[in-house]
């Protein structure tokens, strides 16, 4: 479990010559009772890891789609505790690694130590906290380390070379390369420098590099995976799941497999 299952899942995909695909869903969007079947659907469609969003009232790194999904989840009474309890319930029947994406305040309120303990008990393998930069990481990193949960760090287009080196060194599981200066959401095209940026990050680290923010079509997936090891897709998956469009989800996820065979 933990870091190890993330590493194993990624290695398995890369060994086959495929790229990793990490879909993001908002926990409890559509009801927490749907979580198990949503995860199963994404796993069956070929996802490598699931990134599971914890709803927060003030998600400053998120665009309108994920904001709305979070609001739907909060309105239906979803909390961090309920998500962890639900993940624990079907822990044994789940193979695919789970990474939580949560803002820091719900974790701070829960207590970082207790959070890490309960993550382990619920079979959570990694954690992403977008509003915790290098400077504040002590608040959660020790507790996560103790329970062997991967603390996945984000590198951005604005990260300076020395920050990038530290982020690459400290990240666990994979390095989350943010592809735009901006918030999550569907993007039409990426900046011309993105390829260079991803290549540069790849040169800094042996760890897998996944690109995320604004990735929304099979074309994007193919374009980006030319430079890195995988993609993270949020808003588009949230949209498709909300519409119940399973076929398009399947096509999108499979685009990471066919890109490099």
């Amino acid at each position: 479990m933990g870091k190890f299952s993330i590493d194993t899942a990624i290695q398995r995909v890369l060994d086959k010559g495929d790229k990793a695909f990490v879909p993001y869903i908002m926990a409890g969007d559509g009801g927490l009772d749907q979580l198990e079947s949503q995860i199963q659907l994404l796993a069956n469609a070929g996802a490598t890891i699931i990134e599971l969003g914890i709803p927060f009232s003030d998600p400053v790194a998120d665009g309108p789609t994920i904001q709305a999904a979070g609001q739907r989840a909060l309105t239906s009474g979803v909390t961090l505790k309920k998500v962890l309890d639900e993940l624990k319930r079907f822990k044994e029947s789940r193979d695919i690694p789970i990474v939580l994406m949560t803002y820091i305040n719900p974790v701070f309120t829960y207590g970082p130590k207790r959070f890490a303990e309960d993550c382990e008990a619920s079979g959570v393998d990694g954690v992403i906290v977008p509003d915790v930069p290098l400077e504040e990481s002590d608040l959660v990193s020790n507790a996560l380390k103790e329970h062997e949960i991967a603390f996945i760090r984000l590198a951005t287009l604005t990260s300076t070379p020395d920050r990038l080196a530290k982020i690459a060194e400290q990240t666990e599981g994979f390095l989350y390369a943010v592809t735009i200066n901006g918030i999550t959401g569907v993007q039409n095209r990426f900046g011309d420098q993105l390829g260079n940026h991803l290549t540069n990050i790849k040169q800094q680290t042996d760890k897998p590099v996944f690109a995320g923010f604004g990735v929304s079509s099979p074309e994007h997936v193919r374009e980006l995976t030319a430079y890195c090891d995988g993609v993270i897709v949020g808003s588009k998956i949230v949209d498709l799941l909300h519409q119940g469009n399973e076929e398009k989800i399947q096509t999108l996820i499979q685009s990471a497999k066919t890109a490099h065979v």
């Binding site: 400053v60 509003d131 930069p133 290098l134 400077e135 504040e136 984000l154 943010v178």
Partner: peptide
């Protein structure tokens, strides 16, 4: 403290 996304940290 400084609890902001990495994109803002350099600024």
């Amino acid at each position: 403290g400084r609890f902001v996304p990495e994109t803002l940290m350099p600024a």
